[in-house]
Amino acid sequence: MQVNGEFRPLIVAFCCNWCSYAGADLAGTNRLNYPADVKIIRVPCSCRVNPMFVLRAFQRGADGVILCGCHPGDCHYTSGNYFTRRRMTLLFSMLDYFGIEKERTRVEWVSAAEGAKFAKTMNEFVEAVTKLGENKRLEDLRCKK
């Protein structure tokens, strides 16, 4: 997306309800800034994120997708984030093969106490995606109005 002649990426962040969504809330409570380009979708667990959702986001024009979950071993549902880790490793390497650069996709563990880590992660991620520019590779032009 171009805003005032400047590229602003569109980032979709999936956050698990128990750790990362709370971590994002804490970043807000502590007034830690990160770019407004990040839009958060709440899911019960990071393992709820179907690879389909990630593909859909890229298809609809997202420039980067990040998944945040509880730290390994801390999953509210005991093992959900382990599934996430494996599924997304596979998905991201496949996307890389398709031409969606590895920097556009990321899995990060953010606990409910790590507001600062959440903000830092988002800042870094937005910066990395901004450098890469717009994602055209998977974008389905039929979806554009």
Binding site: V43, F53, Y77
Partner: peptide, 28 residues
């Protein structure tokens, strides 16, 4: 947690309140 919804290859498994359609609609 929804782990099953993603594991299901035929899309038969869904999570009430956080259904595939709902999350997809949010993404859209």
């Amino acid at each position: 947690c929804g782990a099953c919804t993603v594991a299901c290859p035929s899309g038969a498994m869904d999570l009430k309140g956080f259904s595939n359609q709902q999350i997809m609609a949010e993404v859209d």
